[in-house]
């Protein structure tokens, strides 16, 4: 797999690590069903998936990668920070 890092260009899989589904952090500091969902429960799609990836062996950017979990094809990569509106 090769991932086009928005900052570094096309790079090999081994420069990255993945965190999993790109979900928004729930509101509130009290434990809730929303937190349970955020931490544990997953759509776990067989198909297009939005995931957080970390370019740890590169620029250190967290990315949101839109990727197919069946074909591994990558449709889109953006900086997670930009996505979050920073």
């Amino acid at each position: 797999m090769r991932i086009p890092c928005p900052l570094c260009g096309m790079r090999d899989l081994r420069e990255f690590s993945v965190r999993g589904a790109a979900l928004p952090e729930p509101e509130g500091a009290a434990w809730s069903a929303a937190w349970d969902d955020y931490l544990h429960n997953r759509d776990n799609p067989a198909g297009e998936s939005r995931e957080f990836w970390y370019h740890g062996q590169g620029c250190g950017a967290w990315l949101v990668v839109t990727r197919d979990t069946v074909t591994h094809e990558i449709a889109d990569v953006v900086l997670a920070g930009a996505e979050a509106g920073a």
């Binding site: 797999m1 090999d12 899989l13 081994r14 690590s17 993945v18 999993g20 589904a21 776990n44 067989a46 998936s49 995931e51 990727r67 979990t69 069946v70 074909t71 591994h72």
Partner: peptide, 13 residues
């Protein structure tokens, strides 16, 4: 391989 997958195959790293 550490990325979510249903492909039953992995990559080189």
């Amino acid at each position: 391989d550490f990325y979510p997958s249903y492909a039953a195959r992995g990559n080189l790293p």
